[in-house]
Amino acid sequence: MSVWVTLEMTVREQQYAKLEPFLEEKLPAVRSYDGALSVSIFFDQTSNQLLILEEWKSRQHHQSYIQSITENGVMQQLLSFMTTPPEVQYYDRVMI
């Protein structure tokens, strides 16, 4: 079974215009990372809330990716657009 991961965060005022090209540049690397199955981005302009919805083969695959982008500085770049670090939630897919 796969795991779904949500990352919710608030984008700093007037920063989405700079964040969008950053995401366009970085998302191909996320999508091609070992264990990544899908990544979708949602943005609410009214509240500046950003939701990243990801599907991974396992929680370990996602955590390996997070460790990688923490070590290479991409996480810090992403956080520079945000008011706080993301709230991360893991959900196991349930087949009902």
Rank of each mutant, 00 (worst) to 15 (best):
M1N: 06
M1E: 10
M1D: 10
M1A: 15
S2L: 05
W4A: 13
W4V: 08
V5R: 00
V5C: 12
T6A: 04
T6Y: 12
M9C: 14
T10Q: 06
T10H: 06
V11N: 07
V11C: 04
R12H: 05
R12L: 15
Q15Y: 10
Q15A: 15
Q15T: 08
A17G: 03
A17M: 09
A17H: 08
L19H: 04
L19M: 13
E20S: 05
P21E: 04
F22T: 00
L23W: 05
E24R: 15
E25Y: 05
A29W: 01
A29C: 02
V30T: 14
V30K: 00
V30N: 03
Y33E: 02
D34L: 03
G35L: 06
G35S: 11
A36Q: 10
A36V: 02
L37P: 06
S40D: 15
S40T: 12
S40F: 09
S40I: 02
S40G: 03
I41Q: 13
F42A: 09
F43E: 14
F43C: 08
D44V: 03
D44G: 04
Q45F: 09
Q45G: 13
Q49S: 09
Q49F: 05
Q49N: 14
Q49W: 02
Q49C: 08
Q49L: 10
L51D: 04
L53W: 07
L53N: 12
E54A: 07
E54H: 06
E54T: 09
E55C: 14
W56Q: 12
K57G: 07
K57W: 01
S58T: 15
R59N: 06
R59H: 08
H62W: 13
Q63S: 01
Q63G: 00
Y65L: 07
Y65H: 14
Y65T: 04
Y65C: 04
Y65M: 03
Q67P: 02
I69V: 15
T70A: 05
E71T: 10
N72T: 08
V74K: 08
V74I: 15
V74N: 03
V74L: 07
V74Y: 02
M75D: 03
Q77D: 10
L78D: 00
L79W: 14
L79V: 02
L79N: 15
S80W: 04
S80C: 11
F81V: 12
T83M: 08
T83C: 07
T83Q: 14
T84F: 04
P85Y: 03
P85V: 07
P85T: 10
P86F: 01
E87W: 02
E87A: 11
E87N: 10
Q89K: 12
Y90K: 02
Y90Q: 01
Y91T: 14
Y91C: 09
R93D: 05
R93M: 09
R93V: 09
V94M: 11
